[in-house]
Amino acid sequence: MVRNNMTEPTIDIRFYLNGIAFNRNAPASWTLLRFLRDALGYTGTKCGCEVGECGACTVIVDGQPVNACLILTPQIDGANIWTIEGVAAAGANELHPIQKAFLECDAAHCGFCSPGMIMSTIALFLKNSNPDDAQIKQALAGNLCRCTGYIQIIDAVRKAASKITENDLQKFVS
């Protein structure tokens, strides 16, 4: 599945992705972003700047938001990773309350930044489920949006905070 020339080192890694156990051999030079998209087919995590400035590739690793473009595959061995694909409950025909709030507040225009914005929002709620506007802005400072001007996104996070329950967040840390 993974294209690779023989001289490049690969490494056996085990990790949880969206609650599912994975056991894979991965090229050590691949970033988590490339591995998610090109090896596993999880293309919800977006590739923007690839230098850690835009936040489009934000995923949650062990409860913390990180840039998937700045992690190499060996560094996720043993990690618990959540991406946008795992946010809505598996099998349920329903979006997660954070996703609903983004829709209702028109927080997605082109939508490219939305997966990263939503993952950062989850990480914020894991720390603080009742943030004020300053805390929302600080938590999303590493996620750029070139469409909305951020107002609708901050509205969405505020709205999501008013609706979210512990149940909606539990899986992201377990």
């Binding site: 913390q64 990180v66 840039n67 990480a123 400072a141």
Partner: peptide, 9 residues
């Protein structure tokens, strides 16, 4: 330093 994501790594 940087963003929350950067500070975590």
């Amino acid at each position: 330093v940087g963003s929350w994501q950067i500070r975590n790594r």
